[in-house]
């Protein structure tokens, strides 16, 4: 499956959770495609935030409002008041920030709902590579070597849900899919073993 198709699958899954005309913040918005998609399909408005200069430039090219910033040095609460957004979205970036737990708290403070997607380190292939190969996993969803990976805080679905529980975060909805963002019966029965990517919708309790 093409990268474009996978992305559009993810966009569709996310957009299923978004009410029309909402106010949205996309953290790590990249070239702004998701936000653009949501603007077109759901008439949302809001901002993207991005650290990378080239991606910021591309996002500007896509016509979205983008703020170039390093979320490791600026708190989201510096920029935005409580409940400023209907949705704060962060796709595939939780594992690259320096303190995912703190960022989650900030997201939940400024957003009424948060949508988060991240790769599952507990997927059976990752477990198998470590168990039988004795090496750090390299897969389609985690295509890096241990020494050059930007993914410094990998977790499993179970880990994430435990963090939510500890922090009194309510998991509103969860969708578990494979690397092509398609779901199956197996993934619904044993998500932490068979799911590769999860989409979570969370909010303050």
């Amino acid at each position: 499956m093409s990268q474009g198709k996978i992305i559009s699958n993810e966009f569709k899954l996310i957009s299923n959770w978004i009410q029309p005309d909402s106010r949205v913040l996309d953290l790590g918005c990249g070239d702004g495609e998701l936000l653009n998609y949501l603007i077109k399909t759901h008439n949302v408005n809001g901002y993207g935030m991005e650290l990378d200069p080239d991606k910021t430039t591309q996002a500007l090219g896509n016509g979205i409002n983008v703020i170039q910033t390093d979320l490791n040095s600026y708190d989201l609460t510096y920029y935005f008041d409580e409940d400023s957004f209907d949705y704060v979205i962060m796709t595939q970036a939780l594992q690259v920030v320096s303190r995912p737990d703190e960022l989650l708290e900030e997201m939940l403070s400024i957003g009424k709902n948060c949508i988060i997607t991240f790769p599952n380190f507990g997927h059976w292939r990752n477990r198998a590579q470590l168990m039988f190969g004795g090496t750090m996993p390299e897969t389609e969803t985690l295509p890096y070597h241990w020494f050059d990976t930007p993914n410094i805080h990998m977790c499993t679905f179970k880990d994430f849900e435990k963090l939510c529980d500890d922090k009194h975060i309510k998991v509103v909805a969860r969708t578990v899919v494979n690397s092509e963002h398609e779901s199956s019966l197996g993934m619904r029965i044993a998500p932490n073993l068979l799911g590769e990517v999860a989409l979570y919708q969370i909010r303050k309790k």
């Binding site: 106010r23 901002y47 200069p53 910021t56 430039t57 500007l60 979205i64 409002n65 983008v66 703020i67 170039q68 910033t69 600026y74 510096y78 920029y79 935005f80 008041d81």
Partner: peptide, 21 residues
Amino acid sequence: SHEIVKALLDNDADVSYAEVK
């Protein structure tokens, strides 16, 4: 510049910001 951006965000204005190296 952050001060300007922050004040614009407070007003939900259409704003983009780039910090050029």
